[in-house]
Nucleic acid binder design. Structure first.
Length: 501
RNA sequence: GGCGCUAUCGUCUAAUGGUUAGGACAACAGCUUUUCAAGCUGUGAAUCGGAGUUCGAUUCUCCGUAGCGCUACCA
């Protein structure tokens, strides 16, 4: 039998990092089982719709490499389309199916109309809380006679209102959830609430919609967050009432804030698009997120998405929540940045330079790649490139004090820079563009004048970069020479000398 | 309040009825060094508590404790 699994987001905003993890795991599971991965959109809450969410979701998931075989996708012309035999894949277009199912449940006395007002429900809950009793619906409408129901139905109709429909939880017994990750969990029917399954606006709630759709779409495995575990027995009961075979369930442990609460917007970035925007590579994000709750049980940490597909196994998913640790993400990111070729890195860096107001069209790709190479082992995220490399695009501004090495003084710095100026003037462009060769020449110069390295190299580096911290002077000079030529280097040395005068 | 889940270094985690409880990130120190980074080497750091089972429990069971999740006409 073909495995069919699905990712079923609500279009209510940005793509949460937790959603990414769920989508990634269902994708990895589907692929690893040679199964089908379905994207279904759960838009049953009309009030929470956010325009453009689906498009964004599709874009983000595509960007990071989570693919779908059925449901919505982005066509080559950038428009959204639907594919698959089980559509529509948008719940608001499937209302007839939920209505039909709800009717069937009512006819079988597995569900009932509820005419209680929200005021009464609020009041009821308040009372229950005051009495420290479990707060659930008191099932007032569950035992209405046929006549009473008919009467109330008419009254509602006259007022242009609709009653909700509640599922009738069996009064006794228990349901066992057999979870692929958490194992068997028992729930007593007594503590389960008679959940609303059709709202007064005619839309289903999640509980009904998820069961109907998973059944109709022939989903075999539901992979979702742990927060759904407590409502799973209700879903199982609906399957049973309908005489349907339930799907298998795999609940994923929660992703946590540093304070161990469920990962939320309040405590920093949780939008996948923001991580991408801030210069995290998709490979790093995917690798990191895959390791939140899963690991291969070996020492290997770096996994490409294909490798993840190969190794993924639900049995290796653990049960406890995992704190989202920025440090580790940064480490993954720097690992993947280091793997890039200089040219490819430069390409990825271009938008970040652009944002910093640097007109990169004025500079050659060779130059940009050389700069990228210099920063490659220093970058934790691409966005850091701005402040680190401005000096490659315009003369740095800095205080004269910066030019003075800790073991030296201004007068000495000036002398050393004057000496350097002569050395650079005599250099061929060719020698200048090669950091190794340049290093040999400068070291020879240092030996010749009988100096220590620091008092020469520190002022040089400072003059070129205007920064306290930067890559070494040889690499910087060689790179500068590639993009801006020897003259620029001499200019900067002269500017430094001027500051010390 | 009710129900449920979870519990190994600060964090992600590995392991086993018998180990010096392993790795990675982070931290710290050293090496290297003109600064920073990278790299290399090293250090500190954990089985929530209490019973029980057992020759032996971090591992199995129970009870606590703590944390978290759910408890909507939201998903």
């Amino acid at each position: 039998m073909t495995i069919r699994t699905r990712f079923a987001p609500s279009p209510t905003g940005f793509v949460h990092i937790g959603s990414l993890r769920t989508a990634l795991f269902s994708f990895l599971f589907a692929r690893s089982q040679k199964g089908v991965h379905v994207l279904r959109v759960e838009d049953t809450d009309q009030s929470r719709q956010v325009e453009g969410t689906l498009e964004n979701l599709l874009k983000v998931l595509k960007e990071v490499g989570v693919e779908f075989d059925e449901g919505f996708y982005i066509k080559d012309d950038d428009t959204i389309a639907e594919r698959g035999e089980y559509g529509p894949y948008l719940q608001s277009k499937r209302l007839d199916k939920y209505q039909k199912t709800a009717k069937k449940l009512i006819e079988g006395q597995k569900a009932y109309y509820c005419f209680c007002s929200t005021e009464r429900l609020d009041e009821l809950k308040k009372e229950q809380i005051a009495l420290k009793k479990p707060y659930t619906y008191d099932r007032l409408c569950r035992n209405l006679s046929a006549d009473e129901i008919k009467l109330k139905l008419e009254k509602f109709k006259a007022e242009n209102k609709n009653p909700v429909i509640r599922f009738a939880i069996p009064l006794e017994g228990q349901t066992i959830v057999r979870d692929l990750i958490y194992g068997d969990i028992k729930y007593d029917h007594q503590v389960l609430d008679d959940q609303v399954i059709i709202k007064s606006d005619g839309f289903p709630t999640y509980h009904l919609a998820v069961v109907v759709d998973d059944h109709l779409m022939e989903i075999t495995h539901v992979i979702r967050g742990e927060e759904w575990l407590p409502s799973t027995p209700k879903h199982l009961l609906i399957y049973e009432a309908l005489g349907w075979e339930p799907t298998k369930f795999a609940h994923l442990p929660l992703i946590l804030n540093p304070d161990k609460s469920k990962l939320s917007k309040r405590q920093g970035d949780v939008a996948v698009e923001d991580f991408l925007k801030h210069g995290y590579l998709k490979e790093a994000l995917v690798n990191f997120v895959a390791f939140l709750g899963w690991n291969p049980k070996t020492d290997q940490e770096l996994f490409g998405i294909d490798e993840l597909v190969e190794q993924f196994n639900l049995a290796k998913v653990n049960k406890s929540g995992a704190v989202f640790d920025d440090n580790k993400l940064d480490w993954f990111n720097s690992q993947y940045i280091k793997k890039l070729e200089a040219g490819a890195l430069a390409e990825k860096l271009k938008p970040f330079w652009g944002e910093a107001g640097i007109d990169i069209s004025k500079f050659t790709d060779i130059y940009l790649a050389a700069i990228a190479k210099l920063e490659q082992e220093r970058l934790k995220k691409l966005s850091e490139i701005r402040e680190r490399t401005v000096y490659f695009f315009k003369q740095p501004e800095y205080d004269a004090k910066l030019l003075i090495w800790k073991k030296s003084d201004a007068k000495d710095a000036k002398t050393k820079l004057e000496g350097l100026q002569k050395v650079f003037e005599d250099l061929t462009e060719q020698a200048l563009k090669n950091a190794n060769e340049l290093q040999l020449i400068l070291e020879a110069h240092i030996t010749e004048i009988g100096s220590d390295k620091g008092s020469v190299l520190w002022p040089l580096r400072a003059a070129l970069t205007g920064l306290e911290k930067s890559p070494g002077p040889f690499e910087v000079a060689a790179t500068l020479a590639i993009g801006l030529g020897k003259k620029e280097i001499i200019n900067r040395i002269q500017a430094a000398i001027g500051k010390l005068a």
